[in-house]
Each structure stands twice: as structure tokens, then as C-alpha cells.
Design a protein around this nucleic acid. Structure first.
Lengths: 186, 186
DNA sequence: ACTTAGAAACATACCAGATGGTATCTTTCA
DNA sequence: TGAAAGATACCATCTGGTATGTTTCTAAGT
């Protein structure tokens, strides 16, 4: 009869596990190591089980990054809700959110870079970014604020490679003051 | 007898073609599409021929990125030689060099991101970067200059995804003036 | 409350194709 | 003539995907 599965079925948790483990494997061993087999095994499920939740490997990958983008979006909007000042609000949220992204040893950051390595996924990211700045054009369109966001991306990149940023604290203070309009604008 | 090869042998050019085509394939179709077969075929050579130049696929990949880093290094140093002003020299070279990287439609940029997606390769990049800032600590260590370099990375990232940078011209002017010390320092 | 059909959630078995790599042969160069 | 350059043939392994089985949940019907 074979050692069929006797585990209780919890599809939601399995699905979450599949996404999380795919993410973890991608971070640890690169996107090439993300095979259907490996992800399924890491999640305590067989290939058939995975293919039930995601019709193809590509669907899995897409879901992972969609999930990632969603999480980041929620984090961003949560920070924006906590900020009463309108001008530069998105930029401040973006700055702190991106900094936190690289802070935890960088699993999320490392994953994001994998997203940028794939052309279609990169397009999704580009669309998302453009929509973001477009949506907040009224409050976050100054040169100063754009500069802050670009620098935040740069720091994120440095954190990704564990490259130390010289005078990090001073730099962050500067960015925060620029995003708060404390600095004279351009 | 088979249709054996009657082409003249030019190992150096073949080697170059292998590197270039591997790069091109990676840019166009992602790193996953870089197979020994594909690269060899694109270079008018069989697998055996490729494996002669590079003992393994990983060796090929490594060589591609080493080559990329070398080119960038040379470009950087060339720009630095053309700059008579010592303070901020590296940062100015870095800024213009990085901008040019994304300017040509971004093949080089797209390739670089693939480098960052692989952990060991990412380490090489990190080492290279750290060595660079360390070497020019005497002339490029201010908060302003670091900020310029980080923003340059951010622009590079935006260019990679073809995300438009708002008020790009103004922003670039600002960065250049910051890197030239025309701006009051922090 | 008990049954029961059917869908959902998995497992098992299998496959056609691609992949990296090896072994070996042939041609060209120095 | 020996070494480099490249071709050809071959293989063990792994890949994503399909087909189909088995178990568990769910909800209607009574």
C-alpha cells in the first residue's frame, strides 16, 4: 500500500511554506537551485503536491516575487499611515522601509536582486516603482526627495553585498533631514 | 570522415567570442539560459571546443564576470587619469562611468545584476567595491561624495529597469556639483 | 446526526528532453 | 613531432511536467 500520506491537510500553510522555502533556497543557493523538487522537499511535500498549488515552476517563481512586492507595499503604506506630514511622506517611508530590508541580514534584499535578474520580473518591478512615484507625484517629486530615494537604493545595494558604507550614521541623518525638508530645497 | 572543421584556428578570438556570447545570452534570456551548448553554438564552436577553453561551466561564468569587472575598472581609471583635480576624483569618475553603463540600453548593467544574484560572485563585487573606496579614502571619503556614489548606484538600478528618474537632468547636475565640491560640504 | 458524492489536497510513477561533463578522435599550429 | 584547438560521440543525472492514484475535507441530502 505504500506509506501514503496521513498528515492532516492544511493547504494554506503548505502554500505559505512553499513560497517561504522557495525564497529561502533562492537566497541561500541562488535562483538556479530553485527546482520544483527542492522546494517541494523542503516543504515536506512531493512534486505533485507543489504542482497542485502552482501549475508550473514559473507560476511558483512569479508568486514568490508577487508576494515579496506585496509585503513591501504593505510595509510602505503602514509607515505612511504613521506619518502625519504630507510632503515627502512617501520618500521617508521608502527610506526607512528600504533600510529595514537590508537590516535583517538581507534575505529579502538578496531575493529582490534575484527578481531584477529576470527580465519579465524586472518589468513588474519597474511598473510597480513607476506607479509608486506617479501616485505620490504631488508630495514626493522634488529633486531632493528623488535623490534620497536613489541613495536609499544605493545603500540597499551596499547592504546586499555587505559593503560597509562610510560614515553611515552621518549619511543617514543627512538623508532623513533631506526627506523632512529640514534642508533647503532645490 | 564527417564534416570535420576546416576553419582556421584563432583561439584568442574564440575565447573572446565565448565570453561575449555568454554575456549576450545572459542579458537577453537570463542566466538560466546560459548553457554550455548555447554559448558554444552561438560562438560557432561545439561543446568540446568550449570545454577546452573553460574547464567547466562555472569557470566560464566566473570568467565572464571577472572580465566585466576588469572592463569597469579600466574605464574608471581612464576617467580618473583625465581628471586633474584630486578631491572627489574617484567619485566623479564613478558617477560618469556608472551612468554610461546604463546608457547603452543597459546590456552591461543587466549583466552586472546577474553577478549580484550569485552569492560567490556578489562577494567578489563586494571585495572590489570595498577595495576601491579604501584605496581612495584620502580623496573621496566625505559624506557628500559617498552620497553621490550611492545615488549613482540608485540611478543605475533605475536605468536597469527602465524606470524614469524624475527631473533627471536637474538631479545629475546636482550630483555633479556635489562631486565637484561646488556645493557647501557637510 | 449520519451518510455520501465530489472536489480538494496530496502522493506515486513515469517520461521526454536537456544538461554538464568525459573520453576520444582529428586537424592545425609552432 | 608534439602540443594546442576543436570535433564527435556518449552518458549519467536532473529537470519540469503529465497521468493517475489515494486520502482527506466539505457540503448537500436526508
Amino acid at each position: 500500500m505504500g506509506t501514503a500520506h496521513h498528515r492532516r491537510k492544511r493547504p494554506a500553510e503548505i502554500r505559505r511554506a512553499l513560497l517561504d522555502n522557495a525564497m529561502q533556497i533562492a537566497v541561500d543557493q541562488g535562483l538556479g537551485a530553485v527546482t520544483v523538487q527542492a522546494v517541494a522537499a523542503a516543504s515536506g511535500v512531493t512534486k505533485g503536491g507543489l504542482l497542485h498549488h502552482f501549475p508550473s515552476k514559473q507560476a511558483l517563481i512569479d508568486a514568490v516575487f508577487l508576494d515579496l512586492l506585496d509585503r513591501f507595499s504593505e510595509d510602505l503604506e503602514e509607515r505612511m499611515r504613521d506619518d502625519p506630514v504630507a510632503p515627502g511622506r512617501m520618500t521617508r517611508a521608502y527610506l526607512s522601509s528600504v533600510l529595514d530590508l537590508g537590516a535583517d541580514g538581507g534575505p529579502t534584499a538578496a531575493l529582490s536582486i534575484l527578481m531584477l535578474a529576470d527580465a519579465p520580473l524586472r518589468q513588474r518591478w519597474a511598473d510597480w516603482t513607476e506607479a509608486l512615484v506617479s501616485r505620490h507625484r504631488a508630495t514626493d517629486d522634488s529633486v531632493d526627495l528623488t535623490l534620497v530615494r536613489l541613495a536609499a537604493d544605493g545603500i540597499w545595494l551596499s547592504d546586499l553585498g555587505a559593503v560597509p558604507v562610510p560614515q553611515r550614521e552621518k549619511l543617514l541623518a543627512r538623508l532623513q533631514s533631506m526627506a523632512s525638508g529640514t534642508h533647503e530645497g532645490g
